[in-house]
Amino acid sequence: MTRQRLNFRDSEFEIDTYWLDPIGDLENEPNKPLAIICPGGAYKFITKREAQPIALKFASEGMHAIVFDYPLVGDEKSVYPLVLQELATLLNWIKGQSVEHKVDLDRVLLVGFSAGSHIVANFNSLMTDAEMCKKIFDDEIEVQPAANIIGYPVIDLTLGWPKEDWAVKISSDILYWQAQEHLNINSKPTFIWQTVTDKTVPVMNSLIYAQKMELLKIPYELHLFASGGHGSSLATYVTKEGNDENVNFANAAWWELCMNWLKVRGILPKD
């Protein structure tokens, strides 16, 4: 893993890169997919449970990974629209790394968990709309995500999370509150998973996002598991972190289901 600093105008942000080294004995090393990971943390912090363990899991599937250290509430600037501008900057930066690290620019994924899913969902809505994107980001986005993966996602800030005035602190502009409202025909296919018994982020977030994608005929796959709490990450002992509720053999199936979906989408090979 390598920590790197990038800039959007006068704003500096950091990323952790997990580049896969060439195997070395292949005459023609193939380009590999890349997953950009936005962990959760309620916009208060960035949880490590959804950072390196997820990045290494993607690496085990033959994919490069990057963990995006995005702006939080309490930083010097508002979270939105800066977080979308930084993510767009990161995507353009990847183009310059594609030759050295053999990145397949047609197989880039955005991956979000909880609050990180809110970033991914907003990008999939606002930044795929040409007119809206121009208002947020001056430059052309040269690398477009092929698909998204969101787990126990925050989609709509008015559905029960956050409470009190936290939504206003995330953004005073309601444009960024309800990601489902800005989905459009150019939005990307999305894999969605959550537990029905999530007591932190209501499951309705996943349902309304899938419903809007269905109405727009955007490909998606939705998995709702019968039990389990919020923030289980891989739902295995790897991300247990002292909390038994983070281990759930049934919910852990989301990873295999997701990898199968990526194969169906042509992002991972089927053999």
Rank of each mutant, 00 (worst) to 15 (best):
F123K: 00
V99Q: 11
D104E: 12
N184G: 06
N248I: 15
M213A: 06
D21Q: 07
Y80D: 01
V99E: 12
G229V: 15
T190G: 01
V203A: 08
N246W: 06
D198M: 06
R3T: 15
I36H: 03
I149E: 02
M127L: 12
P162N: 02
M213G: 02
V143D: 03
F13V: 11
T47P: 02
Y220D: 03
L105D: 07
P22W: 06
E221F: 09
S233W: 02
L222M: 07
L268Q: 00
W93A: 08
K188N: 04
E86R: 05
L56V: 05
E181I: 15
D25R: 09
E29L: 11
K32Y: 02
D106T: 12
I170V: 14
L207W: 04
V196D: 08
D165Q: 11
R265K: 12
E86F: 14
K57M: 12
L157F: 09
V108C: 01
F58T: 03
R265V: 13
I141P: 05
I267C: 05
Q180A: 14
D106V: 09
K212G: 01
D16T: 14
D139Q: 13
H230S: 03
I23K: 03
H182F: 11
W254T: 07
T197Y: 11
N28Y: 08
V103N: 02
L90H: 00
G266S: 10
W93M: 10
M259R: 12
E100H: 10
L56S: 01
P53Y: 01
N7E: 14
I66K: 06
V99R: 13
F225T: 01
H230L: 11
E76C: 09
G62V: 15
E27F: 12
E142S: 09
S233V: 06
I15F: 03
P53G: 04
